[in-house]
Design a protein around this nucleic acid. Structure first.
Lengths: 351, 351
DNA sequence: TTGTAGGCGTTATCAT
DNA sequence: ATGATAACGCCTACAA
């Protein structure tokens, strides 16, 4: 039965071994300018020999920095946020930060709890993609900001808050997608718009309306359909449309799951895709390529979005960049079989 | 321009306000038995009024517990691990723990780095699902265990290590899946086996072999095919099989992506499913239901697996349960159109 | 039941 | 360039 809990080596151990003071060790380790090159090397060597690792809690206690970033995303199971997180992790870990991940499950109350939890854990900054009811937490966002903890919004932002935001041009990309459908010759185009209270659905709706109006089409109530966010929601609405005789020529959904659901329903009811009805989604998911036919969708630079947001929060923490820019990343419409008879069948992409 | 960085309230503030000592406050807050009921309530009230929150770093520094659990998973983008994490988060956060998530990207070297990072961050325990080369890190696992940090393996375990493991009965479930294919009347069944060096692929292979032998079939070299882990890998192998005239009647893949890839290749080459060839996967993914026909697959109780693993690591940390059990959870074969002409088309499930 | 004092591992402020 | 010494916020003997 081996005795397990070895003590960790501390700067004291190093100091003792070298016969110098802990302050000197500390300075050597933190690469201070006021230190003799020799002694620093001596310390570094001793540290390596003793397998020294600084105690982040002790450091945090005195510096009041945890080197931890809090992350709050709606969910993790759709590969969308994980791809963003990949980029964040790369950037943050390079900068010596660690990530605390929380999920809000699309509930603003859970989001609230999570933010409080993160604050209590003394994170140095918060990266957040909001729920569809973020406005209800606006007070909390501001409280956190006022308490000195920077926040950076990404993907799903709260427009009311004065903080950096990393996004794509939702309106423009929606416009491009709808324009594409129009150019393909589809006449009756409907938009499955998702939950109204998400900033990003409003923006995508705007793009839809702009494209429609620009091509001289009338947009009546039946052209824009409120939906949920998931496959079933899309399927249900599509079935309803078809059964009540309002079959559209083309569907532009605010996200992929809804587009896929709608497409499945259409197929089930015997429609040919894209001849009878075309489909386009948003935020290209892996499923966009698994489904048949492959789904036209707007691809976002997800891991880049993560990197940029991470860089942004680091700058905020370090007090550089007092401005609160809205950073807009480039996105791309990937056209596939669901909306065009002949097309290159693009591989999925992070872009 | 509002001054932002307010100081946090500490037990000192509470003590001062109440004219008592910090130790009393500390005891009241930690609900010590040696405290008068009155004073505790007084302290609690004052704490609430002053909006007191304990500083986890200070606590950690003295108690040598971070109340943080390190998590190391191969990846996050396939919804498999996120579903497990959901269960973990619920259990751990209820117990006052916070999770540090790292991803190894299927690289044992990255896994190594992550484990070291977690150790340096003084996590109280580690939950890990290994890469396909985990045996290479066996020394590190043991080193960590010996240093006093408990580890619990889940899903993908390292059999050589003496630590708790949370798994399903891979062999048995593979056996059941193959048995199903046999019962459906398929003759020439091949197994797409994944990377050899994963414990779990070995176990699933065993199940395949057992079912085949039990039904008196010969299993030659061509029946078991080494593959990668992704859609493309399955597609490539299936195409190769068909083109070299070795078309199987049924394919049992060690995971869903490979099964889906194989199925897509078969469809592309004109085979009817399940008439010409049947397919079954493992670890039911959302894609299993999106693909057409829907894919027969073994469903695992993912969030439960997370909960159990979490409970397990907490017990280890608290020193209860010195044993290192291998906990086996129930799984289920969900039969769908890819392997049976008539069947209920089950909804996806965490089970 | 409460208070006093020391220490957890590190940085920061003084001296030297 | 280096060393004492005092924090940081909290816990925990030990004393009262």
């Amino acid at each position: 039965m081996p005795e397990t809990t070895k003590k960790h080596t501390t700067i004291k151990d190093i100091a003792k071994k070298l016969g110098i003071s802990t302050s000197t060790v500390s300075r050597a380790l933190s690469d201070s300018w006021e230190i003799k090159k020799e002694t620093r090397e001596l310390v570094l060597k001793a540290a390596a020999e003793l397998n020294y690792h600084p105690n982040p809690m002790a450091i945090g206690l005195v510096t009041k920095r945890s080197h931890t970033i809090g992350l709050c995303v709606p969910e993790l199971v759709h590969s969308f946020f994980p791809k963003i997180i990949t980029g964040m992790q790369r950037t943050l870990s390079e900068a010596g930060y660690t990530i605390l991940i929380t999920t809000s499950d699309e509930s603003y109350e859970t989001e609230r709890k999570n933010l409080l939890l993160l604050k209590q854990n003394l994170v140095d900054g918060i990266l957040i993609s909001t729920t569809s009811e973020s406005h209800r937490n606006a007070d909390l966002y501001n409280e956190i900001l006022n308490s000195g903890t920077p926040i950076v919004f990404f993907n799903r932002v709260c427009s009311k808050i004065d903080a950096p935001k990393v996004v794509i041009d939702d309106t423009r990309m929606a416009y491009i997608a709808v324009k594409h459908l129009i150019e393909q010759g589809y006449e009756k185009i409907v938009h499955m718009a998702g939950p109204r209270d998400l900033d990003l659905t409003k923006l995508r709706l705007e793009g839809f309306l702009k494209a429609m109006k620009e091509s001289g089409r009338t947009v009546d109530e039946s052209s824009v359909i409120d939906t949920g966010m998931f496959i079933d929601d899309g399927a249900r609405e599509m079935e309803r449309l078809i059964k009540c005789g309002a079959k559209p020529d083309a569907v532009f959904a605010f996200n992929d799951p809804v587009a896929i659901g709608a497409m499945k329903a259409a197929k089930k009811l015997g429609l040919r895709i894209p001849q009878d009805t075309a489909f386009a989604g948003f935020s290209e998911s892996k499923s966009a390529l698994i489904v048949e036919p492959a789904l036209t969708s707007v691809a976002q630079p997800l891991s880049q979005m993560g990197e940029v947001a991470a860089r942004c929060i680091i700058d905020k923490i370090n007090g550089r960049d007092a401005s609160n820019p809205a950073i807009v990343l480039d996105a791309r419409l990937n056209i596939r079989d669901s909306s065009a008879v002949r097309c290159q069948n693009l591989m999925p992409t992070d872009m």
